[in-house]
């Protein structure tokens, strides 16, 4: 084992990781003829609204993932070893079903004539609403509850797709917690809620932070979920980038500028997040 073993991968990373990023930077600062320009960033500013919405939706999804995923990871870490491996498999397994299809299936569930609305009609819930809440609020009579083609559906799609990325890192940290520390806190008379708030939660922060990163980054840049569940009305940064590179609006210069700004914003968010996590000195490489 010698350190030159890593050199082939070093060359690989320069060609396939560093060079492409430099290309994006290059494109972002040039016009179609190749001359230096800052005009691309001017065009990006016009999309500030889309940036804002993407970061907002991604933040909401990340928060929901955390609220749903932490208890799940906690319950998992407290189960017997056999159950733990079953839960683990159950959480990973959906990822083997193509994610586009899983998202597509949500369309059948959420649609106006989809499963939820059909069910609510059958049990008379929508009629009930029409007789009570709707007149009270002065709305028009409902035929169905609008569950799709709105921000709710987009957030739901993101939570659905990225929840495992939140659960796994938190779970990994929680099972490694030394039970002696928890026992010590209990022996010293701390009630359960304090043990959790003052001991378990702070110690699980590294997992929480990598979970947040692993959910937020893909959520902010997704371009399929918004298209399928948002009905195309809810454009996000990912859609915008895709449009510049693959769509009719082909313009790699502006696309690169958008991608670059998004990358920098994500790095800024991550840098702020990592502030909360000073304990992770364990030579993991700098998280940018």
């Amino acid at each position: 084992m010698k350190k030159w073993f890593a050199y082939p991968y070093g060359v690989w990373m320069i060609v396939f990781i560093v060079a492409p990023i430099l290309l994006v930077v290059g494109y972002a600062f040039t016009d179609k003829s190749g001359a230096f320009t800052l005009a691309n960033f001017g065009s990006v500013a016009a999309y500030a609204g889309i940036f804002g919405r993407s970061f907002l939706l991604a933040a909401v999804s990340t928060a929901v993932c955390l609220l749903m995923g932490y208890p799940l990871a906690y319950i998992m870490s407290r189960s017997g070893p056999r159950l733990q491996s079953i839960y683990m498999t159950l959480i990973m397994l959906p990822m083997w079903m193509n994610f586009l299809l899983r998202t597509y299936a949500w369309m059948s569930i959420l649609e106006n004539k989809g499963f939820i609305n059909t069910f609510l009609q059958k049990i008379g819930f929508i009629d009930l609403l029409n007789r009570t809440l709707v007149p009270a609020m002065g709305w028009e009579a409902l035929e169905y509850i609008p569950l799709i083609n709105n921000s709710f559906a987009v957030v739901l799609g993101m939570v659905y797709n990225f929840l495992p990325f939140m659960v796994l890192p938190i779970y990994t940290v929680l099972i490694k917690l030394d039970p002696k520390i928890i026992e010590a806190a209990q022996d010293l008379g701390a009630p359960q809620s304090i043990v959790f708030r003052r001991v378990i939660f702070p110690l699980s922060l590294p997992g929480v932070i990598s979970g947040i990163t692993m959910v937020f980054v893909p959520a902010v840049s997704t371009f399929v979920i918004s298209k399928m569940l948002g009905g195309g009305k809810e454009m996000m940064i990912g859609d915008l980038i895709e449009l510049q590179f693959m769509g009719n609006a082909y313009n790699p210069q502006i696309g690169s500028a958008i991608a670059l700004v998004m990358m920098l914003l994500i790095f800024a968010c991550m840098a702020i997040m990592n502030r909360f996590d000073d304990g992770r000195g364990e030579e993991g490489g700098l998280m940018l």
């Binding site: 990781i17 893909p218 902010v220 590179f245 490489g285």
Partner: peptide, 20 residues
């Protein structure tokens, strides 16, 4: 090395796809 190695994992796949 580890920082470079982290880049594909911490940038989104949309950006990776575009750079490729």
């Amino acid at each position: 090395y580890l920082t470079l190695n982290n880049i594909p994992m911490s940038t989104s796949d949309t950006i990776m796809g575009v750079t490729f």
